[in-house]
């Protein structure tokens, strides 16, 4: 039996994705939502790498790099927004009050 099979990795990836999704849904704190988003991105990255290994193609890892860059940009902007919100007197970082900032 080989060390890992493609199906097992797919399974792992979908579990990871679901956990991240659950995190986004259940947490009200923006900081935790951002972390959960990172978990979801990692699940997608795992899928790319696994697919690249399965078909023996470097494209999978190229896409992994793209996801890495995307995650970096997302985290930077998200954390900047969190800091800005925190500085504007909303220390709770509650995602559910974001709708009051209309206009």
């Amino acid at each position: 039996m080989p060390p890992t099979t493609f199906n097992a990795v797919l399974l792992l990836s979908s579990f990871l994705f679901t956990i991240g999704l659950t995190g986004v849904l259940i947490r009200r704190n923006l900081l935790f939502m951002l972390m959960a988003l990172d978990i979801m991105l990692n699940a997608a990255a795992l899928l790319f790498v696994a697919a690249g290994a399965h078909w023996h193609d470097a494209t999978g890892q190229v896409m992994f790099l793209m996801i890495l860059a995307l995650a970096a940009a997302e985290t930077a902007v998200g954390l900047a927004i969190i800091l800005a919100l925190h500085a504007r007197g909303r220390p709770s970082l509650d995602a559910d009050t974001g709708n009051l900032l209309r206009g």
Binding site: M1, P2, T5, N7, G52, A53, H54, Q61, V62
Partner: peptide
């Protein structure tokens, strides 16, 4: 996922060189 066919495959390593060439 369970509807996918079970397949066994070995993962041969892809080096950084391959990735760089592709990138």
């Amino acid at each position: 996922l369970s509807t996918l066919p079970q397949q066994t495959d070995s993962f041969s390593p892809l080096s950084a060189r391959d990735v760089g060439l592709s990138l």
